[in-house]
Design a binder for these strands. Structure first.
Lengths: 226, 226
DNA sequence: AATCAGTGTTAACGAGTGTTAACCGTTTTG
DNA sequence: CAAAACGGTTAACACTCGTTAACACTGATT
């Protein structure tokens, strides 16, 4: 299984990229090495790898921006970020949940391999594609909400991710800034307002079961009650 | 209350499973014994237990993988892992946060029972979602006050928390500074006045049942009488 | 190339929530 | 009794959030 896995590696420093590529290949992975973010995005669409290893600082498109675009296409593909130690902790942490992980440079190859194997193996188990919310069934990967036996309601990427995090923290207050960093990568005024819009959209789509509520906690965040 | 608690026990070794099941049953728990991870997952969905005791090493689906899936459904259900001593410490520790705990095999039944009771009791303290105050039903989680069969009155976050603390200390004087520190994080002049405003608001919303009163104890705090 | 549908962002306005100030009566203190 | 302290209540205010709609961007289709 692992032996066939296709890995996309985006690293702008040629020497490092080559070493990592070769090391991974000796472990039986197929490695696609890209030297900048744009090339990585193109390669992603073309080759559909099972896992991404992205340098954060890259020409043309940085790792986070790239990751966000790819997450629009695939909500669950595991991503490992390679970060320089100068990278601030909190920015990185915003990305580490979900199918993500990160490694600080310099890192050992063993460590990278362990994490790759871990993400590839446990992936299927980590995100059970369907979860129940009240009388709804929420298909995260399918991006659908199904009320009892009715026609599934389609969710957009943002809606599905937002609901996913709310559900993971159901009956607890989920901090605005945590959601914003996870979904938008940053916490600024406009993102915050955008998020409010999606809360409205989710409330509409969830209103068939009145036991389910998304309650606001002023100044802190939202709480999914079910 | 505990006596009615449903516990899911997943343990692949039949002899051990049977012993634990019977021991817990003599303590008044209802025990659902499953012999592998897959069966446990099915049983979980069907029976909705209040607590899980999972062997880590099991056929079909190991305890950690199982726990992850169940956590997607319920982020707060307490889980106790049973681990062989060969299990490395650090792997186990990754799972001990949240509502989790673990026991190294071999373990004593007393120890298991203590931990079960501990987790079940703590949990109840954490979220007794509904409590009755006179003829009202106070939904703390839902932030509502329902008088008999009428339309629920909505409470704001502050109102709900304030009432929650008053109710937790009903018929006793609750010190001003304690509430202020818990709800406002600090005890200063302005917060104190703000709190008085909320007391007024609560009194209004509680006035349908005249047996309920929020009495001021000059210089000390408030007392909820019901 | 032009149009269209889907998605996400920005803007604008109104409603909800919490804080502060002001005024009042009551109780305590000197 | 007068002054001070305390608390009740209301209203004004500032800030946050809910909601709608317009707009921008992307891909797909014709």
């Amino acid at each position: 299984m692992d032996s066939m896995a296709k890995i996309l590696l985006a690293e702008d420093e040629p020497a490092l990229g080559q070493i990592v590529k070769e090391s991974l290949e000796t472990k039986g992975f197929q490695v696609l090495l890209c030297k900048d973010g744009q090339e990585a995005l193109d390669t992603y669409y073309q080759a559909k790898p099972q896992l991404l290893v992205l340098d954060v600082m890259m020409p043309k498109k940085d790792g986070f921006t790239l990751a966000k675009e790819i997450r629009m296409q695939d909500a669950t593909i595991p991503i490992i970020f390679l970060t320089a130690k100068s990278q601030t902790q909190d920015v990185v942490e915003g990305f580490t949940l979900g199918g993500n992980d990160y490694l600080k440079k310099p890192f050992s190859m063993e460590e990278l391999i362990v994490r790759i194997k871990n993400l590839l193996n446990h992936r299927k188990d980590q995100v059970p594609s369907e979860m129940s919310i009240g009388d709804y069934i929420f298909g995260f990967k399918q991006q659908t909400l199904t009320y009892k036996k009715e026609e599934p309601i389609k969710l957009t990427h943002r809606e599905a991710h937002l609901l996913f995090h709310l559900h993971n923290n159901k009956n607890q207050v989920l901090d605005r800034s945590i959601i914003l960093k996870k979904l938008w990568g940053d916490d600024d005024f406009f993102n915050a307002r955008s998020m409010d819009v999606f809360i409205t959209k989710l409330r509409k789509k969830l209103k068939r079961d009145e036991r389910i509520q998304i309650v606001n906690v002023r100044g802190f965040g939202y709480k999914l009650i079910c």
